[in-house]
Write a protein that binds this DNA or RNA. Sequence first.
DNA 1: AGCACGCCGACT
DNA 2: GTCGGCGTGCTC
Length: 720
Amino acid sequence: MKQIIAEILMPLALDKPYSYVVPAHISLAEGDVVLAPLGVRETFGVVWRLFEGDPAKLKPISKRVDAPNFSENLRKFLDWIAWYTLAPRGSCLALALRPPELDRVDNIRLGVRLAGPPPARMTAARQRVLEAAEGGMLHTKRALADMAAVSTSVIDGLIDEGTLETLAMAPPPIADEPKPDFAVPELSPEQKKAADYLRAEVTKAKASVTLLEGVTGSGKTEVYFEAVAEAIARGKQTLILLPEIALTAQFLDRFSRRFGVRPSTWHSGVGGRKRERLYAATASGEARVIAGARSALFLPFKELGLIVVDEEHEAAYKQEDGVHYHARDMAVVRGRIEQCPVILASATPSIETRVNAERGRYGRVHLPERFGGRILPKITPIDLRKNQPLAGRWLSEPLLNAIRETVAAGEQALLFLNRRGYAPLTLCRSCGHRYECPNCSTWLVEHKYRRALVCHHCGHVERRPDNCIECGTVDSLTSCGPGVERIAEEVAEIFPDVRRIVLSSDMPGGTERMRQELEAVAAGEFPIVIGTQLVAKGHNFPGMTLVGVIDADVGLTSGDPRASERTFQLLQQVTGRAGRGERAGRALVQTYQPEHPVISALISGDADRFYREESRVREYAVLPPFGRLAALIVTAREREAAEAHARLLARSSQPPAGVMVLGPAEAPLFQLRGRYRYRLLVKTERAVQIQAYLREWIERTEKPKGNVRVTIDIDPQSFF
DNA sequence: AGCACGCCGACT
DNA sequence: GTCGGCGTGCTC
């Protein structure tokens, strides 16, 4: 006998849905959430497919759950992610499925309002309560008491008298309606042009990707807010993705100044009841604009009209455990599936996004200047070969002079060095022993004030010994190279009377202390600030007229294929901090290699050229005769296997020029039934050829059971 | 993800 | 002799 069979996908590490029979009394649609027996327990799952067939000995579904339906688009999106990342489909479902609480108790809040005649005994306190309750509005007890400046017992008394009554309050609206015309800003001609372009994309309601590029202060946010306004006006929902740290009160305030209300926010910190209601409000369409971290990508939007990915180059968009994905790429894909435009906003776009824009795959709008007349700082290199600081010193004469001038003028100088601690290396003068981490074989970083040697990789800490642990020589340890603490020490020697502060992520006292210190810096309390990359982002320091980069070469030598790109972005951000009001600041960049592409691009301000060069270099790196093969691995424990595999490759009949084994961060190479999958970074005409070669090679040497898929790509859209 | 089964080390 | 560690494998 034929019956209705449902294929249910469970939010577990299972790639395939399981089949159940649908009992006659349950009516189901594809995308519905159900409860079904699995092993000895019951599990939530989503109906992935319904069909008629022979129930054989299938177990029946337990019940249909009252939860938002997974639209066809959402299911398609999750299937796509599973395919692209090679993660089990169930794991991808787990990103989107909130286990519904079956027996949820609506914790109804009680409200009070005016109901009867005034009390027989009137007092001053009671009078104030009655005035506050004027109009018959429903208030919570607490709110009414606060308004009348009385304690809640006065209100209790009035309830007993029958003057006030209590009744259940509707839960507060989870999502206020943003008003697209609340405060329409005045835009510069360039901003207007960009905003018009983006508005037009929203109006078309078709899949598109646009890179919105503009330096800090150029008004990117105001511009994309216009696109958001257009989406709101058209009754569509908007998703604004932000790196988790950027979800600050500052952003929310900015939004509410433009739209009159704060957007709904979604991030890992939103929990419990609120999370559940926001989820439902997204599905019903009640939530018009969601600002969220990467997990917001998986919300069940009803009618998505626009996705904005702010700071698209941020590494925080990479999900590194469980399902590996890059939220920016997934946003592009979701836009494609939902047929809505995607805006990628950044002052320093990632290479792949730039390349996609340059090749015409993505549209591009550019905001060339700072809004409000702010001028970009003048950036000057200091060639350390010609201006060598004294031994054990790190500040060159030109930089010292600039600091002197700045301090004398009552302005602020920022000395930037992206290295925490006192010295990156400690060694013994007598035997040459280097102090390395027992777990990571990286150098231990000296932290002088903590009298410790710390591994910045794994967190390992040990006491800094007085005598060498290797040869026992007394007082023989020497600190090599500078960290911010050491720069602070030098500053203290040269400018003993000037207040200074070190800002780095290991500041004791937690976020509260950090917030206070940042405010003090912004208020101009410290003429000299020494900081790590922490100072490059977010916080604005209005009195900063000088930025000194202590060592621009830090980070250029690491084996990371993104080293150049990251360094360029970081230096561009940090030098951009210089300037006050309409006055341009200056940035002095100490370097041993002023002709290095990163440094010269930074100094000339020619970002375009840098990115063009860099993408060419990268393309070369993966091109034949199979240039470098990027073997990308998933987990640390698979690294060894991948490296062994890479060595094998190197000995093959057509060896690659080199093999890069990257961490899981860049793009996923996942284990496929015990085999590895490779992904190259750049798509070219040779891609198909390389792909075929690799497939053949892998089959010859590895004899994998499943299909070997080799994907070569930088634009996720090209995978459709 | 749970929860079974299962195979080796320290205990009442 | 059992209790219990977590490695491996399965769940329609």
